[in-house]
Amino acid sequence: MATIKDELTTAEAWMKAGKEVAIATVVETWGSAPRPTGSHLVIDEAGNFEGSVSGGCVEGAVIAEAIEVISCGEPKMLEFGVADESAWEVGLSCGGNIRVYVERIG
């Protein structure tokens, strides 16, 4: 069987290499969201990342929050969407809303 290479195996490899890692997961979507519920983005303390939660629209913001989650250790729930004006700059161009749960691994 071919070995799978994706963000979850990357996260495990990063951990084994001694890096601090956070995982972001889409837990809810409304309207047209680019990535389905359950999708992951993994981030290390230096801001390296794999996977996606939105196909590129809000990754920048999620990575910044993830680095904070890595340092403080407390999980965070993030919400993005065009309905939220304060999120305009990092909103989803497709008009959907998503909720993303960000947690540290370990």
Partner: peptide, 25 residues
């Protein structure tokens, strides 16, 4: 996420077994 959760999950996926992660938010 518990590192053990990630490890177990990846093992199940590599072995083509269905697995599910339950997270209490």
């Amino acid at each position: 996420m518990d590192p053990l959760t990630l490890k177990k999950l990846n093992q199940h996926r590599a072995d083509r077994r269905a697995a599910l992660v339950v997270t209490n938010l």
